[in-house]
């Protein structure tokens, strides 16, 4: 019984891990959608902040060292700008 539960838990944790998109991949894809190169399709050093109006600002670094700022306005508009 204990062995069966362990197997079940392992399956439950492994299957979503194989299919879900990580936040780093999501941000990298957003950067690429706006026409910037982001090799490796992942980012690092993610910093995120939100102001009182609901506008969200995310900064992340791509594998080639380029740092980008992603602005998500309160109404859901997404813009990307390169910082360096």
């Amino acid at each position: 019984m204990k062995r069966f539960l362990m197997v079940l838990l392992a399956v439950m944790f492994m299957v979503p891990a194989a299919h879900a998109v990580t936040k780093a991949e999501d941000i990298a894809t957003t950067i690429m959608l706006r026409g910037y190169a982001c090799p490796g399709r992942t980012v690092s050093n993610i910093s995120e902040r939100e102001d009182a109006r609901g506008n969200k600002t995310i900064q992340a670094t791509c594998a080639d060292g380029a740092r980008y700022q992603i602005n998500v306005s309160a109404d859901g508009r997404v813009t990307v700008q390169r910082l360096n």
Partner: peptide, 12 residues
């Protein structure tokens, strides 16, 4: 779940 939230917002 194939794409993330920010990607969906960018497409929108």
């Amino acid at each position: 779940d194939a794409i993330g939230v920010f990607t969906k917002l960018a497409i929108r």
